[in-house]
């Protein structure tokens, strides 16, 4: 009896140490797996966007005239400003990451707040553009792809803004929620935001410039 208990205690000791080495359940001390998982998710997201881009390029390639005749020219000024806002927001959100790595929670809040605001401005700009465009969803193939692609990207911007607001809310609720050693939420939101940014650049080139 005594022997078996000893045995069990010993085995538990082994399993305890082995677990901390080999097994992670997404606890705070193992943010690396979650980042890896996020990258896997972004692989799938990229595939989705690439699929839509290639579909767009195919439509474009097989059409005799592109955009189809009668499509009004796209205004470049507003989406250009929007692009600048979105690209610079990627630099702003990186400040937040640097701040939290120095345990500066106030800095994190400030930079995340600014980035979220920039995201909202981008979305408002896009809605404004939609309202003033001279073509609708069903006008022609170009119009349909334009709305679906930008709309789908806009949805991702919205998700990014919501992620940032969630991080903000958490850091305001308890000041020590994020620290220099534990800030998966911050990193995840930042990586996602960079991803959304890259997608926009491709989208902007495809739809507006080409």
């Amino acid at each position: 009896m005594q022997g078996s208990i000893d045995n069990k205690n010993q085995s538990i000791q082994i399993s305890g140490t082995a677990e901390s080495v080999a097994v992670a359940h997404g606890h705070e001390e193992h943010p690396d797996l979650r980042i890896f998982g996020l990258f896997m998710f972004l692989v799938a997201e990229s595939a989705l966007f690439i699929g839509l881009f290639v579909a767009y390029l195919t439509f474009r390639a097989v059409a005799p005239v592109w955009p189809p005749e009668g499509t009004p020219k796209l205004e470049l000024l507003l989406p250009g400003i929007n692009t600048v806002i979105l690209i610079s927001s990627s630099l702003v959100i990186h400040q937040a990451d640097s701040a939290i790595k120095k345990n500066d929670v106030a800095g994190l809040r400030k930079w995340f707040g600014i980035t979220a605001l920039m995201g909202v401005v981008f979305l408002c700009g896009q809605v404004y553009e939609y309202m003033h465009l001279e073509f609708g969803l069903r006008t022609n193939l170009f119009a349909s792809t334009f709305y679906v692609l930008t709309g789908f990207h806009g949805l991702h911007v919205l998700v990014g803004v919501m992620l940032m607001l969630a991080v903000l809310w958490r850091s305001i609720k308890s000041a020590d929620h994020y620290s220099s050693t534990s800030h998966f939420g911050v990193e995840a939101a930042e990586i996602y935001w960079h991803f959304v940014d890259v997608i926009w650049i491709i989208l902007f080139i495809l739809l507006y410039l080409l």
Partner: peptide
């Protein structure tokens, strides 16, 4: 991870 999202893309366009 690479192929399933393309089906999703096709189905989204089809649903439109």
């Amino acid at each position: 991870l690479i192929a399933t999202p393309i089906l999703a893309g096709a189905l989204i366009l089809l649903s439109f």
